[in-house]
């Protein structure tokens, strides 16, 4: 059954050929992937930086932190203001 043997041989050669094609494609894929990663990263940075960069509604402050919870945050800017004014009187 020489014909069948040749077909199997050819099939094997084709499978090896496909593997080699993959090997040759790999650097191209890796380059595309790196570009895609870079693009996604830049887009992500841009999206996340938008709230930081855009002018925001003026609340009179940028950030409030407190070491205790349950305290009304708005009292702090008011207190900062009162202290300044009282120290000038």
């Amino acid at each position: 059954m020489e014909s069948k043997n040749f077909d199997s041989l050819w099939q094997e050669a084709e499978v090896n050929r496909m593997a080699k094609e993959l090997v040759r494609e790999y650097p191209r894929w890796r380059r595309r992937r790196r570009t895609a990663t870079a693009v996604v990263s830049v887009a992500l940075v841009a999206v996340l930086m938008v709230p930081v960069l855009l002018p925001r509604a003026d609340k009179g402050y940028d950030l409030i932190c407190c070491n205790r919870s349950g305290i009304d945050a708005e009292q702090w800017p008011a207190l900062a203001s009162d202290l300044l004014i009282e120290s000038a009187l």
Binding site: D58, G60, Y61, D62, L63, I64, C65, C66, N67, R68, I71, W76, P77, L79, A80, S81, L83
Partner: peptide
């Protein structure tokens, strides 16, 4: 009780950070 107010606005163009 420790609080910080970053960017406490003093005027249109100037802010300060405050710790109380």
């Amino acid at each position: 009780t420790v609080a910080r107010v970053d960017g406490f606005r003093l005027n249109d163009s100037t802010k300060v950070d405050v710790v109380m």
